[in-house]
Design a protein around this nucleic acid. Structure first.
Lengths: 279, 279
DNA sequence: CTAATAGTGTCTATTAGACAGTATGTT
DNA sequence: AACATACTGTCTAATAGACACTATTAG
């Protein structure tokens, strides 16, 4: 143990004074941030609405290991820094954003996940309405559009930033009695550093699931939005078409009609809504 | 950075050879295991079925800090140990069990959560059918029955091992834009060490949610069980009465009827079922 | 026979899915 | 007028909730 012959200490205070924190081999902890948003591609037809897609912020590594590859923004957690403060700090330095939705995703701890040394990383998922960013991204950070094809055996994630386009392929292995239902194995990945493909897959899955039973999606919306836009975001996240009347029935109690309208789109104007909150 | 003037390295291999893992201040990582099960209290009336309740395995601390208090089994993660192997190793040493359901719960990283030093802990939830344990618990480990009362503002967890009985009270604070819906603050806790009350609350909540949309509950069942027993376990986890016909309709595709019966209970015998698996 | 649980039939209420229709702006 | 989307009415299918009933054992 870290202190010899514990029983001689008469109080916790006395014990702590004698405690040697170097008695156990320590390791490094980092955090990675999966910042997701929804981006719009302006249609060439003035009448048509914009196409939406999910997007993720990736940073190009300028040093070893994985030099030249893309990765999630991240960094070391300070010895005196709250675990949750680290992703907030990194997000601020990378995007200049504060007070955005942040949720702990999963802690990745494979011994060999970082070739430098033993590193355990707690990944966070952050959601944002991309349009509040005024393009003040630092470094080599860029938004990539995400398309994910998934079946019972594998998932293929396509990432596209307008210049580079690449696929990441992960195989699903059914797990027995341990941890989650599936274990993912990265089988094809030329451009994503570390195990960040797994983080991406887990995050998208989490967001998709939570979209069904929470109001998480509103964190990716601007203050005012049309129900059509909101439906499009849900469709992109859930990766399926929704029926208008059903969607409006379900979403109606969560939103508040405003007197504002969106006009000038070459078709019937739509009412702008606000998020009302649960219940 | 950890290596001076990175750009001079011509390859990743060369870079790694020069990397100094002590350049960043390191910290300790531990794991805590929330081992949950369901226990039965034999009724004094021979006709009546046993009362069931959820239970958790706690260990009495025999050293500082929190000497004399109860805590979840746990320990340090080795430098060369896979993150998921640590809880498995500790579970085996504590209960002699292997191959039981294990799921990562959450990573707790408050700077002051351990008075000795900075420790980040990844908590795992493990589920087991208590009856396969032949009372070969190590140390001062004991099962405590759990009763949880929860409303919009607080949660009160009662823990009872037949000898000691105590309450833990947590207040809910609504979080804005950050992390999960609620943040919990332990406001009353005389007997549970560290922040383990939070782990307990998060784990019970996770199990309750997952009981509704996964087959997680079967990890707490023996190989053969009656539908009445299964329903009781669901009722204990969900903390509400279920209607027989509805329960049977929903559970029917997941279970397989056997030719075995349970008799001698002072009432109509019941058919024993097995878990069939999903779909 | 009685107490107690096992197990089923069926009605009703609620929710989800589908389709077709009407409404209203811009060019 | 034509296009494109906004928005609504209503039928139907699927699911969940409720209640009442029958079945079967040990003592």
């Amino acid at each position: 143990m870290a202190v010899k012959d514990e029983k001689v200490f008469k109080s916790e205070k006395e014990f702590l004074a004698a405690y040697d924190p170097n008695a156990f081999e320590r390791l490094s902890i980092t955090t990675d941030i999966l910042l997701l948003s929804v981006s719009s591609t302006i249609s060439d037809n003035y009448r048509k609405n914009d196409k939406k897609s999910m997007s993720v912020l990736l940073v190009k590594r300028d040093s070893y290991p994985f030099k030249g590859k893309w990765c999630l923004p991240g960094g070391f957690v300070g010895y005196n820094e709250e675990l949750e403060e680290a992703p907030k700090r990194i997000l601020k330095s990378e995007t200049n954003l504060t007070n955005i939705y942040l949720e702990q995703l999963y802690t990745y701890g494979n011994v060999k996940r970082d070739p430098r040394m033993r590193v355990i990383s707690t990944a966070y998922m952050a959601l944002v309405d991309k349009n509040i960013l005024k393009d003040d991204l630092k470094d080599e950070a860029m938004w990539f559009d995400i398309t994910m094809l998934e079946d019972d055996e594998q998932a293929i994630i396509n990432l596209d930033n307008g210049v580079i386009n690449f696929n990441v392929k992960l195989e699903k292995k059914l797990k027995e009695k341990t941890t989650e239902l599936y274990d993912y194995k990265i089988v094809e990945n030329k451009n994503l550093a570390f195990d960040h493909a797994k983080v991406l897959l887990n995050g998208i899955t989490r967001l998709r699931n939570k979209a069904n039973y929470t109001d998480i999606v509103f964190n990716m919306m601007p203050e005012y939005f049309t129900l059509g836009e909101l439906q499009q975001v849900y469709e992109v996240i859930l990766n399926k078409k929704l029926l208008d009347p059903a969607f409006r029935r379900i979403i109606e109690p969560k939103v508040e009609k405003t007197s504002k309208m969106r006009t000038g789109e070459g078709h019937r104007p739509s009412v702008l809504f606000k998020y009302k909150g649960n219940k």
